[in-house]
């Protein structure tokens, strides 16, 4: 009888585990997300060579995008360079500017087509934790689009995805269902 009880207990445990497992699978939006590449890894891999890139952030001074120059490890591969630029961007400014991204945002995926369309796939926090107001959405979108197009000539348009999917809008305002062209009027002169 004792053994019976042990087996019964084990089976209940199994059912509970199965429950948890399937629950997770149901909401498991991010289960296949590759872990964000750690930044130190990059820095240690290529000690000497660096290149300068221009990142665009918000400023308290006005509602335009302001440049911040940052050094990143030199990268001959365009996609690698673009990834690194986006990662630096969502890491936030270091010179007193204002970040237009939710702190939790991660880059899930990036690819560049031969036609020069960059697909930038952010983690779901990019949308979930976003302030979702017109100005905030415009700043976020054009920080990404202008920064990528400004630093990499091959990038002509930027398609922004979140959680692996095309989204209707970022937070109810800005249309994400089409690729963006850079909009340099938003950059401070």
């Amino acid at each position: 009888m004792k053994r019976y009880a042990v087996i019964a207990l084990l089976s209940i445990l199994l059912v509970v585990l199965a429950f948890i497992f399937f629950r997770n699978e149901n909401n498991g939006n991010g289960s296949t997300v590759p872990p964000p590449v750690s930044l130190t890894e990059y820095e240690s891999s290529e000690p000497g060579e660096t290149q300068e890139v221009t990142l665009f952030f918000l400023s308290e001074d006005d509602d335009l995008l302001h440049p911040e120059i940052r050094k990143i490890p030199a990268n001959a591969d365009l996609s690698g360079k673009a990834r690194r630029i986006v990662e630096e961007l969502i890491r936030g400014p270091q010179s007193g500017l204002v970040s237009p991204f939710p702190r939790e945002t991660r880059l899930r995926n990036f690819f560049l087509t031969d036609e020069g369309v960059a697909y930038v796939d952010f983690s779901k926090e990019f949308m979930n934790k976003h302030l979702s107001g017109s100005s905030a959405e415009i700043a976020t979108v054009y920080s990404v689009v202008n920064t990528l197009a400004f630093n990499i000539d091959e990038i002509k348009k930027v398609f922004i995805l979140a959680n692996g999917k095309e989204q209707e809008t970022l937070g109810g305002h800005v249309n994400l269902s089409r690729p963006f062209l850079p909009f340099y009027n938003l950059i401070v002169q």
């Binding site: 918000l58 400023s59 308290e60 509602d63 204002v98 970040s99 237009p100 302030l131 979702s132 107001g133 017109s134 100005s135 905030a136 700043a139 348009k157 305002h173 089409r178 690729p179 963006f180 062209l181 909009f183």
Partner: peptide, 24 residues
């Protein structure tokens, strides 16, 4: 609508019309 920004200083009313994403 009512606006929102990451900038603490952002204030005021704004009127928008559609931008066509230019050439496309």
């Amino acid at each position: 609508h009512a606006n929102s920004s990451n900038r603490k200083e952002a204030t005021g009313s704004e009127t928008y019309f559609l931008s066509l994403n230019a050439t496309d």
